[in-house]
């Protein structure tokens, strides 16, 4: 696929028409959303692993985690698994507080971080009600994983060279972006692709006929911490 320059990326993000014209299947730009069916989730953590390998996140940075909560006492124990990517809130508290607008809402619904603008103040991490934001402390898996530092994921469609180079997103905040670089080449996010129980759905919420739109209307649908007023784009099914 065509490599995007930073300028093109920004233009695509800010001017929806430009993006739509590029996609040219629909006149309307998609508004991405994810549905996670908790009844289907088996808590295998495959999504977490796939996410780490797709985004080559360093130690301490996990865009997706599966939160497991055990309820009750033996023998009446029930475990619930809640996979937690970034909620891509429509009213993101992180973007509200960012002093430099390094984190902002793209027109396609994704909450993005401009790694080249972020000053690393970590206000957004503090402000996120879902704990979905991680600070890149500069760690590496080089000791455990051969050639980990050789290449970094092309997050937001930008090539960032070797880990530790000038362009690496170290000492800034990072988080899930629905695998935006995969969306740009018409692939679904890595966690959705690998989910063993098919618990994750991904699609365009602005299209009423998409599977995510239909599932979002299900009586099982709910949001994490709905009372926060953040309007998440990740919808859970009970």
């Amino acid at each position: 696929m065509k490599k995007l320059t930073r300028r093109e990326l920004l233009r695509n993000n800010f001017i929806s028409t430009a993006h739509a014209a590029e996609k040219d299947e629909t006149s309307k730009e998609p508004k991405w959303a994810m549905v996670i069916d908790l009844a289907k989730c088996i808590g295998c953590d495959t999504c977490t692993v796939a996410c780490k390998s797709e985004n080559r996140t360093p130690p301490g940075v996990t865009y997706n985690v599966v939160l497991t909560e055990e309820k009750g006492n033996y023998p009446n124990v029930k475990a619930t698994h809640v996979p937690r990517p970034c909620m891509q809130c429509d009213r993101p508290p992180c973007a509200q507080v960012c002093p430099v607008k390094a984190t902002y809402k793209m027109t396609n619904g994704i909450t993005a971080i401009d790694y080249d603008r972020c000053i690393g103040c970590r206000y957004c991490i503090v402000a996120c009600p879902y704990g979905a934001r991680y600070f890149d402390f500069g760690g590496t898996y080089e000791q455990e994983m051969l050639a980990y530092d050789e290449v970094q994921a092309p997050e937001y469609g930008t090539q960032r060279g070797k880990r530790g180079s000038k362009n690496s997103p170290t000492s800034v905040t990072r988080k899930c972006h629905f695998c935006y670089h995969r969306l740009l080449r018409d692939e679904e996010p890595a966690c959705v692709e690998v989910c063993l129980g098919d618990a994750r759905y991904f699609g365009d919420l602005s299209n009423p006929n998409s599977i995510v739109s239909k599932l979002a209307k299900s009586p099982r649908a709910f949001y994490l911490k709905e009372e926060m007023g953040t309007h998440p784009r990740v919808i859970y099914l009970k």
């Binding site: 973007a95 002093p99 430099v100 607008k101 603008r117 000053i119 103040c121 206000y123 000492s171």
Partner: peptide
Amino acid sequence: GRMDRFWHALWYGNITS
């Protein structure tokens, strides 16, 4: 985190921050 970008705090802004 990025001490070298301290000037971003003045150069860029965010009306809600």
